[in-house]
Computed example of a mutant assay.
Amino acid sequence: MSTDHTSLPETFEAWTWTGPGEPEALKRERRSLEAPGDQEVIVATRAIGLNPVDWKFIAMDSALWQPGQIPGVDAAGEVLACGAGVTHVAPGDRIAVHTTLAGPGSFATHLRLPARAVIPLPETIDWATAAAFPCPALTAWQAIEKLPVKPGKRLMITGASGSVGRWLVQLAAERGFRVIAMASTKRHEALRALGAQEVLETPEALSAPVFAVIDTVNGEHARRMTDHLGANGHIVCVQDRLEAAAAPAFGRALSQHEVALGALHQAGSDADWAELRQAGRTLLARVADGELTLPTPEIDDFAHLPQRLSELKHARVRPLKTVITL
């Protein structure tokens, strides 16, 4: 599907990266808006979801970025125009997107995106909820999909009170796992309400080895958690990865998994993308129906984006999710 692009605005505003540093160093600029290429869409941004990967990349000296890069991976908005070959969305559609770290990102009033990454929204999903959805929800879905479904098996989720962790608790519980959520005591009641059958502060409280651990903390933490796996167990790393085998050969025979949404941007097939979009649509429909729960995000204005991202990085505030609206 291609469309007439003459009605597109000539320019847009974006927060841009000038070099490794703090979020406050982002520069607000006006850019020319190009027409979409083949398999691309132009989206008018209505909300932007902030994620830890945003401030992590802003601080890095990455070969993926040059000065002028627009950061950000999550957004929601309205499709304005479609390039040739786009078939699953049309101008006027409401969408959510998790876009590539390597290309122009979501910190902008208008987005030029690969259409394959765009997920249509249910009518009843508001912009803020849609923008808060992609990174945590799709990461959790990818993580749980790494595991064979074995109802009754014990699955421990670390960092369970975070955005990804809360999704994982719900998805694991509905698959029939016995969910063990690890988080601070003040979060235990909320995690039980989401489906956790056991809650604990430290793994030392475990009564027996577990079938699997999904770790949302970091690589070193994940390595320590492998001590609590039984025979033929699984470790799934959401943050970082294990660089070496978690156990000696021919011992417990542990399986190691890493999760990265960016893998699809690098090497995903059309079938891979169709599967991810369908998972997103299904999850969003279940949110709309009240079957799955998202925390209510804190909302601020586009002008305050660098400040809010800095607050998240330095833990000056701890909302489960912050969304920037336009």
Rank of each mutant, 00 (worst) to 15 (best):
26 L>D: 00
11 T>C: 15
82 C>H: 03
56 K>C: 01
46 R>H: 04
59 A>G: 15
14 A>K: 10
12 F>M: 11
89 V>M: 11
90 A>E: 03
93 D>N: 12
15 W>G: 01
24 E>K: 08
36 P>M: 09
91 P>R: 00
60 M>N: 10
52 P>I: 07
49 G>P: 02
89 V>Q: 05
105 G>V: 00
27 K>H: 13
62 S>Q: 10
70 I>Q: 15
87 T>I: 03
51 N>E: 13
28 R>K: 15
56 K>D: 02
92 G>P: 09
85 G>H: 05
30 R>H: 02
99 T>V: 04
56 K>V: 04
58 I>A: 14
80 L>M: 06
27 K>E: 12
68 G>S: 12
60 M>E: 05
5 H>E: 03
86 V>K: 07
96 A>E: 11
88 H>E: 13
12 F>A: 09
53 V>P: 06
74 D>Y: 07
50 L>H: 03
32 S>T: 04
59 A>N: 13
27 K>L: 11
4 D>G: 12
104 P>N: 11
55 W>T: 02
18 T>I: 03
12 F>D: 09
95 I>M: 13
95 I>G: 15
60 M>F: 02
65 W>N: 01
22 E>H: 10
15 W>K: 00
73 V>S: 04
69 Q>T: 06
98 H>Q: 11
51 N>D: 07
85 G>D: 07
64 L>D: 15
104 P>L: 06
43 V>D: 10
16 T>C: 06
92 G>A: 08
42 I>A: 02
89 V>P: 11
98 H>I: 04
49 G>F: 05
67 P>W: 13
19 G>V: 01
61 D>Q: 01
38 D>L: 13
45 T>L: 13
65 W>G: 00
7 S>C: 04
3 T>L: 02
86 V>M: 07
70 I>L: 14
85 G>Y: 01
40 E>H: 14
23 P>F: 01
56 K>G: 05
38 D>H: 14
81 A>D: 12
102 A>N: 12
13 E>D: 13
61 D>K: 01
85 G>M: 04
12 F>V: 04
67 P>S: 14
18 T>N: 12
69 Q>P: 09
